[in-house]
Design a binder for these strands. Sequence first.
RNA 1: GGACGGCUAGCUCAAUCGGCAGAGUGUCGCAUUCACAUUGCGAAGGUUAUUGGUUCAAGUCCAAUGCCGUCCACCA
Length: 750
Amino acid sequence: MEIPKNYNPQEAEKEIYEKWSKSGFFNPDVCIEKKKTSPDAPHFSIILPPPNVTGVLHIGHAVGTTTEDILVRFYRMKRYRTLWVPGTDHAAIATQSKVESIIQKQEKKNRHDLGREEFLKRVNSFAQESHDTIVSQIKKMGASVDWGREAYTLDKKRNNAVVTAFKTLHDLGLIYRGIRIINWDPKGQTSVSDDEVKHEESEGTLYTFYYEKDFPIPIATTRPETKLGDTGVAVNPKDKRYKKYVGKTFRVNFAGEELKIKVVADKEVDPSFGTGAVGVTPAHSFVDWEIANRHDLEVKQVINEYAKISLPKSEFFGLKTTKARELILEKIKKNGLLLKEEKIKQNIARAERTGGLIEPLPKLQWFVAVNKDFTFPHSSLSFVKKGEKTTLKKLMKLAVKKKHVSILPQRFEKTYFHWIDNLRDWCISRQIWFGHRIPVYYPKDNSKKENISFFVGEKPLEGEWEQDPDTLDTWFSSALWTFSTLGWPEKKKNEKKYEEGNDLVNYHPTTVLETGYDILFFWVARMILMTTVLLGEVPFSYTYLHGIVRDKAGRKMSKSLGNVMDPIGIAEKYGTDALRMSLIIGASPGNDIKISEEKIKAQKHFANKIWNASRFILLSLPEKEKDLQKIIQKKIPLNKKDTTRAKKLSKHIKEVTNDIENFRLYLAGEKLYHYFWHTFADIMIEESKESIYQGKEEDRLSASQNLYLQLTEQLKLLHPFMPFLTEKIWSLIPKTAEKDLLLIEKWPET
RNA sequence: GGACGGCUAGCUCAAUCGGCAGAGUGUCGCAUUCACAUUGCGAAGGUUAUUGGUUCAAGUCCAAUGCCGUCCACCA
């Protein structure tokens, strides 16, 4: 047989992936049927973090996919009942705003010009295209996912899960509708959750002034235009300067607007900052909203959804907040009310997806109550009993504290707890069109009234009803992902460990959630929230957090910097296996991964080294059929030296296995590299040449036997990391008849 | 303001329980009929950011400092 001198990944990869797919072994049901695992075997399951259908896979996805595939292939070879479910995420706001901007650019139209139905058609076709690209890219990475179980966060089954989850939480009293101050994105024309707001530092001006001459307390603000909505002034209870005014109400005229200002004492006020007095604007500041709640101050909205002044009688009506600010300042100055003007550093809030400047506004929205007591309905969790009073916050916290979920690296547990401590009710309604429509029905033409009775769940048959026009936060459906992909709510949990056809019983809780640390809050925390309350289980036993991929200079990859690496381009140039190795070696959990073309090249060299070492062994195997058969059946006795070599291999197998089992993939990868190249190729093969070319027959056979063993066992060890290359070489190696794909070979005994 | 991470060879990073500081890449030298030039062999390259402490032993543990970075909070 002719074996080329160089390994050609482009040729091998496509053919091999098809071979794997055809074999059916990505599907655990087939593995059971073909006796490659059994119903009694422990399960190992991962649900692929669904990539957003906003475009193509980036290198971060490649890290995740590789990490997951290594684990999945390892446990499949260890004969676990192994399932990896693929899918994609509709990514509501991200996708909608992307399509909106494309339509704006190409047709100069906005979504209202098209109408809800037509617009959604456009978004769906964009999503479909993006989906198809993503699927082909996941395949290119070699991911051994079970395509037969593919899911989409917005498909029919997942919608059923969303509706059921919404209704269940509402029935438990954990979802409510109400007017609260929320983050409003004027650009995207929707509310967003606290986590979707990003703060960036900028320079601002802090103005200190009086509302009017007769008002005794000066106040300070960076946004004078919001002061049109002030209904109070808060001071510290211990502040002697202002004590005499506390409890009094003043009527003042500020910039032509009549204000009713009540002076209140609140311990949150820092007497040493500014003037020690806060002008309270309940409608346009989170902190002020809280103060107003505590002291029963009136809420007066002065800014609307378009970030314009909304007071019809005011001279500033209809002006943008920035313009109004200028004019109001002029007035303050003209009236001699300005005391001080100083430059300060401040953080401005922007919507993560659209970049719009966040305007806090009171609005009627849907919320998940995280601090509210409710009666826990399940008996399957050890840290909270059935019938016990608890809160969602407590559930989220205890799941990790009681080690039902372990976060790797562990230091992120602290970050997680801290986030929960600061958590406010989760605003889940969005005023966008793309996403799961809120499953609530109001009597016709009454959807905007606050105190109206409504119907949650399926549309009622009788009477005139209309569905809530809003959609759900995309993370609401993502939070259900581990079980919505496994058949919930049609499938139910029961006492059994295995029930044919019931994925929820067979694979939930999943074993590992592998994702980037940047979505710990967005996703991981919310999955724990939803799963504990809805299923009485945790979603996964381990959370493995990988780092963010950075360029050679340590910069985050971004389109604007032009340093984005296309994983597929790299895979095509250097081979998928080389890309996979370079993403794993040197990438410990939670730490950022720096990648460069040189690093990938080094792994391409390694792939070629493996190829050529294998080539040598294949060419040096004994020609006599009888001897060859003995070697294949591992029947040649090893001499003393080769026995030592075999022992080295066992030790190596043990170490690599141990590293993978403990999620130290970066170490396992490095050891595989080092052992193959510098122990096996440099030393063992070189030393064996003497026996093979000039040795006595028994030494020659012993050497061949050892090299054969070393190679075949190492191919197994390397397979999860470099699946294509190893599978290709495996197909060239003479072996016993029952052996077929390396994919489903048994992992070496330790 | 709070929390977390990093600082190890020119560069990118490892070092599992506290036990001989090690890879890749780059640099320099040598080698090409015999698996592999996408290679092999060899060399140079280190006060592990700084200061102090614990210990038989510290890159690793403790305390402090400096620089770089990240997340959270949001002082109006």
